[in-house]
Simulated assay, not measured.
Amino acid sequence: MKLDKYTVGKRYGKALFELAIEKHEADSIYQDLLKLREIFHEVPDLGDILSDVRLEPYEKDEIMKQLVSGFEGTIENFLYVVYNYSRMNDLLLMIDEYERRYDEHKSLLLGTALTAVPLTKEQHQLMEEKAAKLLGYEQANLINLIDPDIVGGVIIEANYKVIDGSIHKQLERIQELLLK
């Protein structure tokens, strides 16, 4: 049974994270993965090239040697495992899963705060503090997105949860109550 790329990404990312925790290398591996993500964004087809069966193995091996030359230890070994199983085209999903687990381990909440107008620096900081406390995290990093349609208030989306405190939503609730 062939696994879909998201399942593969989750499994490899989880395995790497668990190994990183066991070896007390979570921070350094995270930094290496950020570098890898940047390389894959600069060369978007790199994963496909390294997973392509139409290329000769020696051609892919040469590209792989150049890629891993900037890494050592656990990350170098991980890259060779991923390469040997022809999963380099799923590497970004693996990095995403590692990052999600890393942030959870660090008690860092990542998400968005949707507002009708841009937040001031102080409002943004207060919003992050309240969101972190409300959702049980030590700190939050929320990206402020703007949507005038929400009228006012805020909609926070983080870790598959949505807190809708928008005026638009409150008006919808009032309308529902009045129509009952």
Results as ranks from 00 to 15, higher is better:
D149W: 00
V162M: 13
H24Q: 14
E25M: 11
V154Y: 09
Q175R: 15
L119W: 07
D96P: 02
L36V: 09
S51Y: 05
G70D: 08
T112P: 03
D149G: 11
K161Y: 06
I174P: 02
V117G: 07
L36T: 03
G47H: 00
L177E: 10
Y12D: 00
L67P: 00
L91I: 10
A131F: 04
E76D: 12
A158G: 02
E38W: 07
K5P: 01
F40R: 06
L3V: 09
T112N: 11
F40S: 06
Y12Q: 03
L142S: 04
Y160V: 02
K121F: 11
D149K: 12
K180I: 07
L119P: 01
H24C: 00
A113K: 03
K169I: 04
T120A: 07
L3C: 07
P44Y: 14
S28A: 13
G13S: 10
G165R: 14
I49T: 08
G13R: 05
K60R: 15
Y12L: 06
N84M: 10
L92M: 10
L34Y: 01
I39Q: 02
I143H: 07
E76H: 15
Y160Q: 14
Q139N: 13
L16M: 12
M127D: 06
P118H: 12
K130H: 13
I150S: 03
K65C: 06
N159D: 09
F40D: 04
V154M: 11
L109Q: 01
A131E: 05
G9L: 04
L50A: 06
Y6Q: 12
A113L: 02
K10G: 05
A26M: 10
T115D: 09
A140N: 00
Y102P: 04
Q123D: 11
K5G: 03
K5D: 14
R87G: 04
K10S: 09
L67G: 03
D45N: 14
E99N: 03
G152A: 14
Q139T: 13
G13E: 00
L110Y: 11
L91V: 07
G13M: 08
V162W: 09
G152K: 13
G73A: 01
K180T: 13
I167M: 09
M64R: 06
G70K: 08
Y30S: 12
T7K: 15
L114C: 08
D164V: 13
V117N: 14
D27P: 01
E18I: 06
E76L: 15
L36I: 12
